[in-house]
């Protein structure tokens, strides 16, 4: 039940406990308990809306930064990754395989803002050997949700 519940929440976290219980064929109490437990265990980290900010006249920009890092003997990439994660400008941090080490998604009010943050904070960080900044020009899909379509039902009333 937990995995199905997580899938359901991932798709739409605004369903009521009763609705989720009905849809899963489970008791409301059991659903509430499972959610509680998974929140405590840190499986569920939060509930957010997926927003297409472009539609609300938002001028914020974001960028994907490739970070090359010299790993520390005992801690590997953990220390740098955790330090980077603490900045409010940083939206996501991932450890990568391949040509570089960390992907950092940074948001800011302007291109200049983001560039300044990278130059001043990330590039100067101990163990960071290089950065490459790629600005996001347009978002087409976010968290499994397509932003480019209008979400309209184009089925006609033709079926019998």
């Amino acid at each position: 039940m937990k995995l199905k519940l997580l899938k359901l929440l991932y798709k739409n976290s605004r369903l009521s406990l009763e609705e989720m219980a009905t849809m899963l064929g489970a008791e409301t109490k059991a659903v509430a308990a499972a959610i509680d437990e998974m929140e405590k265990e840190g499986v569920i980290r939060g509930y957010k809306a997926v927003i297409d900010w472009e539609r609300v006249d938002n001028t914020n920009v974001s960028a994907l930064i490739e970070l090359k890092v010299t790993p520390k003997a005992a801690l590997g990439f953990e220390e740098v990754a955790e330090t980077v994660s603490k900045y409010p400008e940083v939206e996501s941090v991932y450890l990568m395989s391949g040509g570089y080490d960390l992907t950092v998604i940074v948001k800011g009010k302007s291109f200049h803002d983001v560039a300044k943050f990278v130059a001043k904070e990330l590039a100067t960080m101990e163990n960071v050997t290089s950065t490459a900044t790629h600005f996001v020009l347009r978002r087409y899909k976010e968290s499994d949700i397509q932003l480019c379509d209008r979400n309209s039902d184009d089925r006609g009333l033709y079926s019998l």
Partner: peptide, 8 residues
């Protein structure tokens, strides 16, 4: 509509 017999 809950009319259509066609997958969404």
């Amino acid at each position: 509509s809950l009319g259509v017999g066609e997958p969404d």
